[in-house]
């Protein structure tokens, strides 16, 4: 999974985007997303695709990693693009550009914002328990991925995987997943005890620094408003 690489970029980057307030980044990401969804002209959509690419380059995140992840939505949208291409090729291209642009927007947000800050912004609109579930999910994911990696190594070393024996592999994989699920449940029980001892009452306190806005926030907001205006205005050049 590339999630660890993305997480590393978000926590260790030092670009102007990393320094911007999380709430600003979430706001402009959603603004660009809205712009992409409402744009019906291929020219505008292309501009909206180029913007996150430029921002990714400027923010110094690993472009290769991001493009690798962005390839998935491109592949999935290909099916819908082919269907739309039966109507017109522009419609098909629009589907591809919108899917790729939206994915790059989200990846840019995730690669420049640590997940605790991101879920902190979400906590403005979501119930506390849901935000806690996000935090527990994210935290558990890395621990369980480590366990899975070790388990897969053990299975291979002990001859539990044969490329040609599908049922045999499935049986062993199910056993491994079962063991991991049991580990996960034990882990949740431990988390419950630890958090209870620390006074957890159903809402993990998350930092929500959004004020005062910095110069970079102001510039990003201004830029996003210019882009929105550009999308809304029907250009006749």
């Amino acid at each position: 999974m590339h999630i660890a690489a993305i997480d590393y970029m978000a926590n260790n980057g030092d670009s102007f985007l990393h320094q911007a307030r999380p709430v600003t980044k979430v706001f402009i990401s959603f603004l660009f997303l809205v712009c992409l969804i409402i744009s019906s002209q291929i020219g505008k959509a292309l501009v909206l695709l180029v913007i996150p690419i430029i921002l990714i380059l400027l923010s110094g995140v690993n472009l290769r990693e991001v493009l690798h992840l962005a390839a998935y939505p491109l592949v999935f949208s290909l099916i819908f693009a082919l269907i739309r291409m039966q109507q017109s090729w522009i419609l098909g291209m629009l589907v591809l550009i919108k899917a790729l642009g939206a994915a790059l927007n989200m990846l840019l947000l995730l690669a420049t914002t640590p997940y605790t800050d991101l879920f902190g912004v979400f906590s403005y609109v979501l119930p506390g328990v849901i935000v806690d579930v996000f935090l527990f999910t994210y935290r558990s994911l890395f621990i369980l991925l480590d366990k899975l990696e070790n388990m897969v190594k053990s299975i291979r070393l002990r001859g539990g995987f044969h490329p040609m024996k599908l049922l045999f592999n499935l049986k062993n994989a199910a056993g491994a997943l079962g063991v991991m699920t049991i580990h996960a449940f034990d882990m949740s029980e431990r988390m419950y005890r630890i958090y209870s001892l620390r006074g957890y009452k159903g809402k993990i306190p998350v930092t929500r620094d959004w004020w005062p806005l910095r110069l970079v926030d102001g510039l990003l907001l201004l830029f996003s408003l210019i882009v929105l205006t550009g999308v809304l205005i029907p250009w006749n050049i």
């Binding site: 999974m1 328990v129 806690d132 579930v133 996000f134 935090l135 527990f136 999910t137 994210y138 935290r139 558990s140 994911l141 621990i143 369980l144 991925l145 899975l148 599908l166 994989a173 997943l177 991991m180 699920t181 996960a184 449940f185 882990m187 949740s188 029980e189 988390m191 419950y192 958090y195 209870s196 957890y200 009452k201 159903g202």
Partner: peptide, 24 residues
């Protein structure tokens, strides 16, 4: 709430891991 929130979290993590497993 205290007991079940971590369970939902690990279930979410497990689902993400299950999804990442290739099926040949």
């Amino acid at each position: 709430l205290r007991r079940k929130t971590p369970i939902a979290g690990v279930i979410g993590a497990l689902m993400l891991i299950f999804m990442s497993l290739p099926l040949g």
